[in-house]
């Protein structure tokens, strides 16, 4: 019980770090990393919730997180490709790095 609360708190901290990256940090790379952290924090909270719900680990929560991870990977891959396209299309691409 205590352990899972610890994980929930850790998840909330990771979510906050991710949101900070998205909302405050300049630069697209930081925002994409922030998005990733946000997602990871949400998954951590979900897994910790699954442990709290019953004595055993809840398999449904784990399958939800698995689906979420698949979506998160494709979002990250796509956003990185997009960012690469943006930086190469930039006129002075060499000097200005994100």
């Amino acid at each position: 019980m205590n352990q899972s609360i610890l994980y929930v708190i850790a998840g909330i901290v990771v979510v906050c770090i991710g949101l900070e990256g998205i909302l405050i940090r300049p630069g697209w790379m930081k925002k994409i990393l922030g998005l990733n952290l946000f997602g990871t924090g949400v998954f951590l909270i979900l897994i910790a919730f699954g442990k709290r719900a019953g004595k055993e680990c809840d398999p449904i929560m784990q399958s939800l997180v698995l689906t979420g991870i698949v979506i998160s990977v494709s979002v990250t891959a796509f956003s990185l490709t997009l960012l690469q396209k943006i930086t190469t299309s930039e006129p002075g691409a060499k000097e200005k790095k994100t």
Partner: peptide, 8 residues
Amino acid sequence: LRYLIVAV
């Protein structure tokens, strides 16, 4: 890219 980040 902005749309993607906000939507996700």
